[in-house]
Design a protein around this nucleic acid. Sequence first.
DNA 1: TTGTATGCGTTATCAC
DNA 2: GTGATAACGCATACAA
Lengths: 339, 339
Amino acid sequence: MPRQVPVSLRPHRITAADVARKAGVSRSAVSRAFTEGAYVDKEKRARILKVAADLGYRPNALAAGLQGKGRSNLVAIVTGDLVNHYDGEILARMVRQLTAIGKWPVVLNAGDEIPDADVSGVLGFPLDAMILRGGSVPDDVVEHCAKLKIPLIVSGRILDRPGIDSVCCDNERGSALAVEALIARGRRRIAYLGGQADLTSDRERRKGFLDAVQAAGLSPVAQADGDYSFDGGLASARALLTAHPEIDALFCANDAMALGAQAVATCELGRTVPESLSIVGFDDIAMARWPTIALSTIRNDMDMTVTQIMRLLAARLDDPDAPPQTVRTEPEFIARGTH
Amino acid sequence: MPRQVPVSLRPHRITAADVARKAGVSRSAVSRAFTEGAYVDKEKRARILKVAADLGYRPNALAAGLQGKGRSNLVAIVTGDLVNHYDGEILARMVRQLTAIGKWPVVLNAGDEIPDADVSGVLGFPLDAMILRGGSVPDDVVEHCAKLKIPLIVSGRILDRPGIDSVCCDNERGSALAVEALIARGRRRIAYLGGQADLTSDRERRKGFLDAVQAAGLSPVAQADGDYSFDGGLASARALLTAHPEIDALFCANDAMALGAQAVATCELGRTVPESLSIVGFDDIAMARWPTIALSTIRNDMDMTVTQIMRLLAARLDDPDAPPQTVRTEPEFIARGTH
DNA sequence: TTGTATGCGTTATCAC
DNA sequence: GTGATAACGCATACAA
């Protein structure tokens, strides 16, 4: 009975069987030739590799991942809006670090909200892990991952759920550093320009701000919510500075908003920075260093963050049942020209 | 003979067999329950879906992709350095568009050079397609894709190789628009601040610049190479403006370099923009619109670019053997405050 | 409408 | 060292 040739829409990809046939060996031999440290005659391996190269054969990673002990080597990254730069710069680092250890990042762009459907969809793959950055963390995502036994690593907030690793900047401390710097500069009428009030990061930064202001014997002039974007920061700052012209310092929940605030203050409201208004951001995105920008800010160390994410990932892959870890990275005040 | 329970490092993921057992149906029934428009009793499907939800079952996309007619739904994106914003903003759009049509983007960050090893590695997956952005395109990547029958879509340059779709801005026209705007502004001593001279995009933009300057009866004061980065633009502009103080206009091969040039010109060399020096960039990244930046630039339309990429992708998936397409997007001069 | 049987491409196990 | 063979989890043609 002749083997029926299936009429596939997908063009035929060279398989190990093809190579085996052409090289006159068994499929097993081909598989071993591609396996580090497997028992194959040296000469035979060379011949197989040669034929494979000629044919353009590569072991199918899908099939390999399906294999019992195999891993898919796929890691999903759910990221926030890349236009805000911090997420973009973190993403670039994660992508590089992951590929460096042989993992392939499947990227989902969350934007404002984490798209449940997409997250749910990507969980169809037997991911080695999922990394969540930005946005809030819906309960069902957590549950899905738990049920599917997919390790979840959260960055940008601490999730006190069992079995979830997280790494996050010490936001309260960061805010305190900012407030201290502003007070040292002689500022007394300080306002807070926040991000989405429902995000943990904003809650912590806000709390740190309020505590520090109070600890200094002051009270906050005003607070506003924003959305962590340039445009949002601009709009919120406009409202804030118009309603409270006495504000002499603005602590912003991230750099993008700080730059938006600076834009509206200088270009529209006739304020000068830092002479009549101090502005301090949070994150220390690459742009903040530019001479034309020179934003004073709280460094939310990206290299350290990604290093820790990778460390947690490695530990989790090594032992899926290890107790979950929580890491707080240390913020640092970076003095530049806007405070 | 009892079925042996494999001792797997990987935690067991619920399979269709598990669901079938618990629901008291066959594995096929479970499969069909998850297949749109398959023949299953309505009530039975509901029961299966219920059991599946309880167990936390999701069809394994790896196994599904291995299927004869199936697709992997994986699309690799090789992108340039995200810190330059243009690539980041394009990436965000691509990620969204791809997930919207049920494709999962596996992202590789090229940075300066396309990392052959990574590209080669990701080709282990039977990708539905590979999208290349930024950097140059090594021959072996093209060959690999061809041998593996993986459609290659190139953006940011036109690749005149058989079987490869590409979409790219009309760079020469963009440069011409910039030069015309500068001349209309009264500038006569115009210099070109280029990107990596070995990239097609830079070659085309440079040629467009030279042709336009010549067409206006002028000659370029100077030219410099850069690396498409802020820091590179800053350094090159410093050299350029120091050696040729008579320069009254700088056309830069991308926005990042233009901003670097502006920084060095204003903060270090005491020039004022646009009074004593005009600067025009290329790309129109989001930042260029900021009131504090207000960069005059050539729009390299991102929405259009991504739309075209998606169109080419869809066409290619629909018919792998269709003749390759090449699309040029139309640039546009955006007048803001730096020219 | 349902269950059985087969193939997808790989790696791992097992005799030889 | 080597080649058959059994998973891996799914979809589907086919028989019932």
